[in-house]
Write a protein that binds this DNA or RNA. Structure first.
Length: 1164
RNA sequence: GCGCGUAUAGCUCAGUUGGCUAGAGCGCAGCUCUGAUAAAGCUGAGGUCCUUGGUUCGAAUCCAAGUACGCGCACCA
């Protein structure tokens, strides 16, 4: 460039094809090299604390994009509070123990060719050596956790999540207890849970219990409700109607129905609903009891247990499988059994209440299992006897009709429910309430144990077993009918095996009586009342309380291998005598055997199993139960196991909420309540957020190919499917785009993630911010702007500068308030509005010529004004960097490093969060600018309505503002409005500018006036439109006696001849559309400028290049060009006007308003 | 079945304490502007603010009932 430009400290900025992910990676390196994180921590050390507790991430696989939502929140709030000067802990955690890891390790082992079809195969990985097998398996689980914890660490760092990470091999060689992140498998974590369980035991809350729960025979493990819900499938089973003869009424039978025939071996009771009416149906020489409502019911119409008759249209047909015959009614069963020509006969009706207590003979009373006091097998009987709720009877002797209450309906089965307390949850409850002892037929592989005669050794899930049951029933004349039945039945989510309901021996924490606020349950509720749940709309406290109110006792045991070893030692001779050990030291003290073997190992299986203690009461040895713990114990203890006392309670936690009210949130609250004796909540504020869905709002599933790996989104790019299901490759999205996308979301809902939403976020915010930054830097560099010059006092800057600074202060206030109340979305939406509407589309656009002006051509005032513009934009960009730094730490760092121009902090993350400067706030000015923008918008509307380009200058604009702000705006910003709308003059009007007119809405007119709207239309035409409008607004307008609403009348506003108008919320504008020859010439000249600019661009010239210009055209256009040549020359950087095209120039032929124009230009 | 929540444009969603003509983005149609622009602006079509009733001068907003969907709990013989 010819002019001598002072050196500028600003680097030029690329605004096309920016590779944001690459910039981010460079920033990661910068942070490392300059120790930025350590320096941030050092700056804040010793200042007031802000305590964050990180919920542990399951270290079992690489991260997906769904992990990034919560982790973005965690980091954004951490960074905000760090910039706000608080001291933080920065400890992140890994969830290590549990079945999820076992599942993956099983897959690994299988892939290595190991035989692994059942749980027992794990115990035989080292053939014949169970402890060695378990040790190997547990070690593999530990290894897998380490491997993926490390992967997740690297990925979290890539996301920008600032934590005290374990980085090098040396860090990872440490024991989990010594690492910087916490690991739930650490000894500290496990022993702290021991102390929790011991505390529970002190209060008498730990008990060994039997309950019936869904069980997978292949995995040998019980499934929780959560796990069960994932495995429902529609399947067909053989169902049976079975006769239960009443002891004291010969020839009379209860008729029961079941879809699980194998449970008939364990039948103990029959439940009726006392309020229902039962029919006595005679068939041949026997009588059967069946619920009246069930008898003729169409059993293919599902889901109808309502009292009111349902409208036929609403009745839904039951889901059914092809090829399975539809169900007959019970009546049809009777008819078909009656045989040709014969029929059944209803011989009476009784109330269910009248059947209660009747004894009957069971279907398998000959089995040893049915003839054992207190139930079967022996272990079960032992517990039942000690429970004290059962009398000393055998199952066979206990058979009777019991009260099932409303749980017994007549819409399914016969209205009499076969009850097997050893095979069903509700049955177990009924059994306990009615003294029916439980008979538990199957072992942990799902096979019949001894005591079940012909069924011994058979698997309950095997269809052949049902056939054997039927054979036995037939022999005893107990089988009334069988049929194929289709229903949704739970399956194991891992191996797809049908689940069986099984009475199992598990360990529980007594939570206190259900549906009360008593006991442990009540203590937790009191703590819940002291924490804040966000976002408010989720009603988190109510959800948590609802769960606490309804939950059952906490089953803490799991019959698996990898996990917390429950510190429960049981007397070898007496299964009811147990102790809970609270620490490693206590165990060492109590150990009488096996300590040497255990010593030096983590408290995991199989090592801790070797330790035996002595029962002080009996002198017997006590052995640890083989169970491992519920993994929510691991995660729930972390408030105590990882946070020093002086950091408790945590100020803040945040996690995805679905499921967590009964999982992590619950475990955390429950365990902290116990550990602090109800004194202290684990956290003060909880922010929940929803789920990450794909870009169409569907659940992400690996199997459906719509989930996105974190690494793909951050760095490598990947492929998803588009709306039509075709593969849609996408480029890397980068961390900041992802982070902004998550932060701008409403946490109460789900977020749709994918390349399309990412593009939208990038275009709508990231690029706008970047372009404003690029504009500043590129002109500052070109111009040699020196940021070290003295600041022009704000009061001496242009209105638009002071307006932008004022609105910036408002944004700062919004930002601080939003972060303080954990509402980063409010900040993001406000920042987007500021950058888009105010900075990019108003301030930068309105002020471009101030930045373009040539310093050398300006007078002192002009130079000062230019400096003010640079300083204003510079200040705003610097503050925006700091404001947005918690959300988009990379991009703001890139910008900051250039914008700071060698002064100030080396990193934006070493700065303080901005504080608003009240002196810069000018509410009146903000209001006026807002009004001015409204007037401009209306003016553009008016131009558009008149069909006149903005390039064509017009003579005048009249404005009738609705209020005082508008009036002040027109006074103050007349020049701005005139310029923006390309009019010569802007003036205020006191009188209405637009004339209203009223017409009938043709859509409704015919209906209102019975097909003849013409007279009404004529009457309306004769009325005063203003009065019509007023009456309509008041809701009291009538025409020819017909009342009309605002929908019936179309009110329009128009400006008088030669003007075009528009109005909004009471503000009216009218623009003079009459074009004089002078205005026309000026407009043509502007067209010429635009075409020349295009030609320059096409010729590949730089903005600063000067040209010689030839313009060949007709007389009128030439006259316009002559009249406005100085403007054209200045705008297009033309130093000379040529009379003929230059020989070696760039030439373009265009049409200006229909006139030919030849442009020829040459760089000089 | 019990409890909680949600319902606003074709899609994704904003809408503070009730207030005048209910908004944004994307998509669609048309127009415009443009040497910071992967841009942007304007206009249009598209709304029973789920329905009904109530409170109020006034309801998308508050209250009640209903419907649909989601979630939690219980259950699925």
């Amino acid at each position: 460039m010819a002019d001598a430009v002072p050196h500028s400290p600003f680097a030029r900025v690329e605004t096309q094809n920016v590779d944001f992910p690459a910039l981010e990676r460079a920033i990661l390196q910068f942070w490392d090299e300059k120790d930025i994180f350590e320096r941030r921590k050092a700056r804040n050390a010793g200042r007031p604390r802000w305590s964050f507790l990180d919920g542990p991430i399951t270290a079992n696989n690489p991260m997906g994009v769904h992990h990034a939502w919560g982790r973005t929140y965690k980091d954004a709030y951490n960074r905000y509070f760090a910039m706000a000067g608080r001291d933080l802990r920065y400890q992140q955690g890994f969830d290590c123990q549990g079945l999820w890891v076992e599942v993956e390790v099983e897959k690994e082992l299988k892939a290595e060719g190991k035989k692994l079809d059942a749980k027992r195969d794990i115990e035989n990985l080292v053939p014949g050596d169970e402890p060695a097998s378990i040790d190997y398996f547990v070690q593999r689980c530990k290894d897998r956790v380490d491997k993926y914890a490390r992967v997740q660490t690297d990925q979290s760092i890539r996301l920008g999540y600032w934590m005290n990470w374990d980085r090098g091999d040396a860090d990872w060689a440490e024991r989990p207890d010594e690492r910087k992140s916490y690991f739930t498998m650490s000894e500290g974590n496990n022993y702290t849970i021991w102390s929790f369980l011991k505390k529970c035991h002190h209060k008498g809350l730990i008990y060994r219990g039997y309950d019936v729960m869904p069980w997978c025979g292949r995995c040998g493990v019980g499934l929780s409700e959560m796990e069960m819900k994932e495995g429902y499938k529609l399947v067909g089973h053989k169902a049976a109607f079975v006769k239960l003869p009443l002891r004291d009424r010969p020839g009379e039978n209860l008729l029961v129905w079941t879809t699980t025939p194998w449970t008939l071996t364990s039948n103990v009771g029959a439940a009726v609903n006392p309020d229902l009416t039962y029919l006595k149906v005679r068939l041949k020489d026997e009588v059967y009891y069946v619920a009246k409502g069930a008898f003729k019911l169409n059993r293919m119409e599902g889901g109808g247990d309502e009292d009111e008759p349902t409208p036929a249209a609403k009745k839904k047909t039951r889901d059914w499988l092809d090829g399975v015959p539809h169900l007959p009614s019970i009546e049809q069963h009777f008819k078909s059994k009656a045989g040709k020509g014969a029929s059944y006969e209803v011989v009476g009706e009784v109330k269910g209440a009248d059947l209660l207590g009747l004894a009957y003979r069971g279907p398998f009373d000959g089995l040893p299992a049915q003839n054992h006091e207190y139930g079967f097998p022996e272990e079960v009987a032992k517990v039942t006897r000690q429970g004290g709720q059962w009398p000393a009877v055998t199952a066979a002797a206990a058979h009777k009709v019991i009260d099932g209450g409303k749980d017994v309906t007549e819409t399914e089965g016969t209205g009499i429910v076969h009850t097997a307390p050893g095979c069903g949850q509700i049955d177990y409850g009924w059994g306990r309430a009615n003294g029916l002892p439980p008979v538990a037929p199957i072992d942990d592989a799902g096979t019949f144990v001894d005591g079940f005669g012909p069924l011994e050794g058979m698997n309950a899930a095997d269809p052949a077993t049902a056939e054997v049951v039927f054979e036995e029933l037939k022999k005893a004349d107990r089988l009334f009918a069988t049929e194929r039945y289709v229903h949704r039945y739970p399956h194991c989510w891992r191996c797809k095996t049908e689940l069986l309901y099984r009475l199992v021996d598990e360990w529980f924490i007594n939570m206190g009586p259900r549906n009360t606020e008593e006991g442990f349950r009540g203590d937790i509720m009191k703590v819940v009342d002291r924490v804040t749940f966000l976002p408010e709309s989720l009603n988190g406290r109510a959800r948590e309380r609802d769960w606490l109110w309804n939950m059952g006792d906490w089953m803490v045991s799991k019959k698996r291998f990898w996990g917390l070893t429950l510190p429960i030692w049981v007397d070898d001779q007496d299964p009811t005598d147990f102790e809970v050990i609270g620490s490693r030291e206590e165990l060492k003290e109590r150990a009488v055997e096996g300590w040497e073997e255990f010593d030096g190992h983590t408290p995991h299986r199989p090592w801790v199993d070797k330790v035996k203690i002595k029962n002080p009461r009996t002198g017997n040895l006590m052995s640890r139960i083989p169970d491992v713990g519920n993994p929510w114990l691991d995660a729930g203890i972390v408030a105590y196991s990882t946070m020093p006392a002086d950091w408790r309670p945590a100020d803040f936690i945040t996690e995805s909420f679905p499921g967590q009210f009964r999982n992590w949130f619950y475990a955390l609250l429950a365990m902290s309540t116990m550990m602090s004796d109800g004194q202290e909540p684990p956290f003060k504020t909880l922010l929940g957020h929803g789920l990450v869905k794909d870009q169409f709002g569907k659940d992400m599933h690996k199997s459906e190919g719509n989930s996105i790996e974190f690494v793909a989104a951050a760095d490598t790019g990947g492929t998803v499917r588009d709306a039509k299901g075709n593969p849609q490759p996408f480029a890397a999205i980068g961390a900041d785009v992802m982070r902004w996308l998550y932060c701008r979301q409403n946490p109460a809902g789900n977020v749709n993630f994918g390349p399309d939403p990412a593009d939208e976020v990038r275009a709508r915010f990231i690029l706008k911010l970047w372009n404003c930054y690029g504009f500043f830097c590129n002109y500052a560099a070109l111009d040699g702007f020196d940021p070290g010059l003295p600041q022009v006092p704000a009061c001496e800057r242009a209105d638009i500068d002071r307006w932008l600074l004022s609105d910036l202060q408002l944004l700062i206030k919004t930002a601080r308030a939003a972060f303080e109340r954990y509402d980063v979305m409010a900040f993001c939406l406000a920042a987007e509005e500021f950058v888009d509407a105010k900075l990019s589309n108003w301030y930068v656009r309105r002020n471009r010529d101030r930045f373009w002006s040539k310093t050398a051509e300006l007078d002192e005032a002009g130079r000062r004004d230019k400096r003010a513009a640079y300083q204003t934009l510079h200040t705003v960009l610097l503050d925006l960097c700091r404001l947005c730094a918690p959300v988009i730490p990379f991009l703001t760092e890139v910008m900051w490093r250039n914008l700071r121009a060698g002064a100030g902090a080396e990193s934006v993350h070493l700065t303080d969060y901005p504080a608003a400067d009240e002196e810069l706030v000018d509410a009146g000015l903000s209001e006026e600018m807002e009004a001015a923008r409204g007037v401009v918008s209306l003016g553009l509307t008016a131009r558009n309505a008149a069909g006149v380009n903005v390039r064509r200058p017009l003579a005048g604009l009249r404005v009738r503002p609705a209020g005082d702000a508008g009036r002040r705006a027109v006074d103050r910003f007349a020049a701005l409005i005139a310029d923006e709308l390309n009019v010569k003059q802007v003036s205020l009007a006191e009188e209405p500018l637009l004339r209203r007119s009223a017409a009938l809405n043709p859509k409704t007119a015919k209906a209102r006036f019975k097909g003849k709207p013409e007279p009404a239309a004529a009457a309306l035409a004769g009325m005063d439109p203003e009065a019509v409008a007023a009456d309509l607004a008041a809701g009291m307008f009538a025409l020819l006696g017909v009342p009309l609403t605002a929908d019936d009348v179309i009110l329009t506003e128009a400006a008088p001849g030669g003007w075009a108008g528009a109005s909004d919320k009471g503000t009216q504008v009218a623009i003079d559309t009459r074009i004089t020859p002078e205005l026309r010439a000026e407009g043509l000249a502007r067209d010429v400028v635009r075409f020349v600019q295009n030609a320059r661009k096409d010729a590949g010239l730089d903005v600063a290049d000067r040209i010689e210009l030839f313009l060949g055209t007709d007389a009128e256009l030439r006259a316009a060009i002559d009249a406005h040549w100085p403007t054209i020359a200045a705008e297009t950087q033309a130093v000379r006007r040529l009379d003929a095209p230059p020989a070696d120039g760039f030439t373009a032929a265009v049409a200006v308003d229909g006139r030919p124009l030849t442009i020829a230009l040459r760089k000089v």
